[in-house]
Amino acid sequence: MKRSEIIVAVVDGLGGGIGKSLVEKLKKTQPDLHVRALGTNSEATGRMLKAGADDGATGENAVVVNAGKARIILGVVTILASGGLLGEITPDMARAVGESDALKILIPMERCRIKLPVEGAPVSQYLDRAMDLVADEVRRLTE
C-alpha cells in the first residue's frame, strides 16, 4: 500500500483543539499520509482543516461512513463512548469507531472522567506518543 493511500481519520468535536494539534503533528511527522478531519461540528472540522488536513467532513454520517474507510483513527478516548465530548458523540458514531478495523490511537484526557492505567503525563506527551504509534502502523502497512 502506498503511504498516500493510508487514510488517517482525526475525530474531534467541541472546539477542535486536540484535533487541530493532532493534524499539525501528523502533517509535520507524516506529511504524505492522507489526513481526514472528521468533526462532530463545523468549528472542529474547520480548525482541523486550517491545521492542514487534506479533507474533512462534519457530523454523524461523516464519522460513521469514514470510520470504515480509515486505516488509523485518532482522537480523545471518549470518541468510543456514546455521549462523549459533552454529548456530541452519538451512539452510532461510537459504534462506528469501535467496530472499525482501523487502528485506534486514543488520547486520554482528565476531564473525560475515564481513567486509564497509565502514568499521568501532559497531553503534549500523549500527542507525541500518538505520532510514534502512527509511524509504527504506517511501517507495518507499507512493508
Rank of each mutant, 00 (worst) to 15 (best):
D55K: 12
T78P: 00
R71A: 14
P122Y: 07
L103T: 12
R139K: 13
P31L: 09
G98Q: 05
P117V: 03
S82Q: 11
E110Y: 10
D101N: 12
G46R: 14
R111E: 07
M1Y: 09
I89E: 01
L103F: 05
G87V: 02
D101M: 03
D54I: 08
L80Y: 00
V63P: 07
L74E: 07
G120R: 15
E137N: 00
P108I: 12
V10R: 01
M131I: 07
K20E: 15
Q30A: 13
I73R: 07
P91V: 08
I107A: 10
I114D: 01
S42Q: 12
P122A: 13
K104M: 03
E5G: 03
M1P: 10
I105A: 02
V123H: 05
I89Y: 01
I73M: 07
R139L: 02
R47Q: 14
I114A: 08
L80R: 06
G75A: 02
K2T: 06
L22Y: 07
L49A: 11
G15F: 06
L116D: 02
K28T: 13
K2D: 14
L74T: 04
G75Y: 02
N61H: 15
P122K: 13
I79N: 04
I72K: 03
A94W: 07
G68S: 09
R36V: 15
V123F: 05
S82W: 01
K69I: 05
A94D: 06
T29V: 09
E43G: 01
G83P: 11
V118M: 15
L74H: 03
E88N: 03
K25R: 15
K69P: 06
G83W: 11
L26F: 00
I7D: 02
A96P: 01
A70Q: 08
V63G: 08
G68H: 12
D55E: 15
R3M: 12
I18V: 15
L33Y: 00
A44I: 13
A44R: 11
G98E: 04
S42E: 14
M1G: 13
V77H: 09
V76P: 14
Q30M: 12
R139Y: 00
S42N: 07
A96G: 04
A94H: 04
A57F: 14
T142Q: 08
S21P: 00
G17Q: 13
T45C: 13
G120P: 14
S4L: 04
I6L: 14
E137A: 04
A51M: 06
L38A: 01
R71Y: 10
L141W: 10
A57Y: 14
A94S: 10
L85T: 00
D55A: 15
L26A: 01
